Amino acid sequence: MRTKLLYQEDSYLKESEATVLEISGNEVVLDKTVFHDGAGGVAADSGYIVYGGERYSATASHKGGEVVHVLDRAPSFKPGDVVVGVVDWDKRYRKMRLHTAAHILSAVLYNRHGALITGGDITHEYARDDFNVEGDMATVRRIFEEAVAEVNEIAARGIEVKVYWLPREEALKIPGVVKLAERMPPDIPTLRIVEIPGVDIQADGGPHVRNTKEIGTVKILKVENRGKGKKRLYYTVE
């Protein structure tokens, strides 16, 4: 990948200058970006690209191993030009809050029930996760309600969220560093680690808040039975 992912170093960057590397129609590749491309189940960022007096609506995407910025029209700028990428911060920040909450939730369910995530995604409005917990729906709802109550108690402690990189072999020796039932981290030599000390540690490439207090309060929206090994929880933050 040619694009430096600025949000992996600082998720609070709202905009950045970048040099245009490639253009194909209305799809633009930059040398660096504040836009998250939607990898890892977190919805891709939207925002706009500014060049001179022109502003283009933009949504990030992952295509052919590259982060691609899909514009609302073909741009007037060309490779080598310098543009400014600006992320829709309100949507991004809600996704950050939900993403960090999701890590705490997965840790609580893993520690309490040995549950792994079998699917899920995060938008700026809500998150949904599937867990391989079993039981009748009354039992499953109770499990989720107890887990969310613990998530809220943990979030209220105001724990600093740490982000750092480790060699892949070293990272994969950490118990519970992967909580996805059917997917391993990408096959790269160094993994980005997101740690909530005393609570959770996971290999993860997406944006997060700096402190668990920023999450607010997690609220259950809906619980569904999606079949064996897939009990689905919809939740949001307030």
Results as ranks from 00 to 15, higher is better:
V237K: 04
R92Y: 04
P175S: 02
T190D: 13
A181F: 03
V223G: 13
V177K: 04
I196E: 08
Y56P: 01
A39S: 12
P189S: 12
A60D: 14
G206E: 10
H99M: 09
V83T: 04
H69F: 15
D72Q: 03
E66A: 05
V68C: 12
F77H: 11
Y48F: 10
H36W: 00
Y164M: 09
L116S: 15
A39H: 07
G119S: 15
G216R: 01
V70I: 09
N152D: 11
Y126F: 11
P189H: 05
R226G: 12
Y56T: 01
T123E: 08
S24Q: 12
D37W: 08
T3D: 07
D121W: 04
S16G: 06
N211G: 12
V199S: 00
H62G: 07
P207D: 15
N26A: 08
G53H: 04
P185N: 14
V133I: 15
E27F: 06
I143M: 05
I49D: 00
G65Q: 08
I117E: 08
G135L: 07
N225A: 10
Y7E: 09
K78W: 10
Y126N: 12
H208D: 13
Y12S: 01
A74V: 04
A147H: 06
K228R: 10
K32G: 07
E160I: 05
D37Y: 13
K95C: 09
D81C: 02
T19A: 08
R226I: 09
R210G: 15
Q8S: 01
P189G: 12
L233N: 10
E134F: 06
D37H: 11
K173T: 07
P189L: 15
L5S: 01
E15G: 08
L166C: 09
P167G: 15
G85H: 13
R141F: 09
L21W: 12
S46E: 13
K14V: 15
F131G: 05
R192T: 10
T217H: 14
E134V: 05
I104E: 11
E214F: 03
K213M: 05
T100W: 06
K95S: 04
N132V: 05
D200G: 08
K32Q: 10
A60N: 12
K91M: 08
L98D: 09
E150W: 07
E170V: 10
L116E: 15
P79L: 01
I122R: 00
K228V: 09
G41C: 08
R112Y: 12
V20I: 02
M96T: 07
L21G: 06
D45K: 00
S61T: 09
H99C: 03
R92W: 02
V199E: 01
D136M: 00
L71D: 12
T236S: 11
Q8H: 01
A203K: 05
L166A: 07
E214K: 07
V199D: 00
G114Q: 13
A101K: 05
K179L: 14
G206C: 07
L172V: 03
V20F: 00
P189E: 09
W89K: 08
S57D: 12
L180F: 15
H103C: 06
A155G: 01
Y51F: 15
L166K: 07
N111Y: 05
A127M: 14
L221N: 00
A18M: 04
E54Y: 13
F77S: 02
K63Y: 09
V209R: 00
Y164L: 07
E153Y: 04
S11F: 14
N152C: 11
I196M: 13
